[in-house]
Design a protein around this nucleic acid. Structure first.
Lengths: 250, 250
DNA sequence: AAGTGGTCTAGACCACCTT
DNA sequence: AGGTGGTCTAGACCACTTC
């Protein structure tokens, strides 16, 4: 027999979290607003400290709130940058205001640091695509408004870029794609693979991610018109800092 | 004066979590393997139960482990489906094996359920793009191998689709795009906006997401050749179930 | 100095799964 | 029946922020 489903009461910490989430999503609590703290929840609901913490940890792990030591727990905002994938493809603008989601202006100035360049043995998948067991690797970090937003690791076939500006910190005007062009290997086709996951510890540190923030991982492979793979670039983005946009025709 | 940075010992629960994560990422612990449970950690490290739980909760919130009541905590696997964005654009295949990341075969059979169709007032951004304050909305859920992987909500300008198969559960062969074509509004241009975040509670339930799993949100807008917006489709994907792929030329 | 979140202990009762 | 994770209490000490 199917038992008449008696809806079990959610545990206290969950009901509290639900209430606070509702307040956040409905806009009752806004951007930098302060949530009731542990002590407030303890007295208001007559619960132990650990239970109040558990309720707040739900919202923190959902990325809706950020704890600040010695101060309180605050509502987190979402105001992303816009990253264009296949933009050049469609210079025309379709429709009126085609973007659905809010985002900050494109083309904000960014800075690059933590540049590290190495010659390494290629991972299997990279070796396959670049048709080279040895690769030069460029690692760097991008920041906008002093806030780190992206880690990037580019791989090039070693034989292709040896003794070129591509293996030096400053790649010159136009960047690595301009240099590849001068070498007779103009990137013509791109594949971007996109996934999302929770960050690894070094990413949490390097991107200064609060708990509950996923990362978007974009793996971009560049091919010449002849179909030769010339770059594999893996980017790790703060998911709270980005909206990706891809434009294409049917 | 800058104090010589004495690296503070991480708390116990963090060191334990780090060790387990290392074992998982290095492959020492594999797909469905069982992690040491709360009792095991308590005796091994001589800690209280809450501390052992805290260590495990780190991995669970990172999406690396899944708890099973009455059984144990297990390593979680990542074996995604591949979703193609601008595939048709480039029928040609560049290079040898162009995919970097592992993924299951494309074109796996899927099922659709929880279909709900409604006429609603459009949200502001949707109304702007579709140039209509009233919209017909198709909600549904996609599953692969009986596992829910995607929620989708499509919006159409009300006047455009009134009394057509688009507002009925079965849209017929070719789906809504074929029907739009027959109405003289063939989708020709697409914009996809992609972001990632932690799931809302109803998404957690509907997609049966374990803790620590982000969702990928894809908002796809379809335009006719004349630049008229004819569909806004917001998809919420289990991030552990998908890799998105976009192909394009420079 | 007072308040806040961060870590940790030592218990308790419960629901669930495995054996 | 015994082990597992899920929830909760009632304390404790600490580091940090704000006043």
């Amino acid at each position: 027999m199917q038992q008449s489903p008696v809806p079990p009461e959610p545990p206290i910490y969950r009901r509290i979290a639900d209430g606070l989430r509702e307040a956040i999503l409905s806009g009752e609590l806004r951007d930098g607003d302060r949530l009731p703290g542990e002590n407030a929840l303890m007295t208001e609901y007559g619960i132990a400290r650990a239970t109040a913490r558990q309720a707040l940890s739900v919202l923190i792990n959902e990325g809706l709130a950020v704890p600040r030591r010695g101060s309180g727990v605050y509502v987190r905002q979402f105001r992303p940058l816009r990253r264009h994938g296949s933009r050049r493809l469609s210079q025309r603008r379709w429709g009126r205001g085609q973007a659905i989601w809010d985002s900050d202006t494109v083309g904000r100035p960014y800075t690059v640091d933590e540049v590290v360049i190495d010659k390494e043995a290629a991972e299997e998948a990279v070796a396959r695509v670049l048709d080279s067991t040895e690769v030069w690797v460029r690692r760097r970090r991008y920041s906008v408004d002093g806030r780190p937003v992206q880690l990037a690791v580019s791989h090039f076939p070693a034989a292709l870029v040896e003794d070129t500006p591509i293996v030096r910190p400053d790649t010159g005007p136009g960047g690595v794609y301009a240099r590849l062009s001068e070498l007779g290997h103009t990137p013509a086709h791109f594949i971007e693979e996109v996934r999302a996951r929770m960050p690894h510890p070094h990413e949490t540190v390097s991107l200064d991610l609060p708990p509950g923030t996923p990362v978007i991982v974009v793996c971009r492979t560049a091919y010449t018109a002849e179909g030769r793979g010339v770059e594999v670039n893996e980017m790790v983005l703060d998911a709270a800092a980005y909206v990706l946009q891809y434009d294409f025709d049917s």
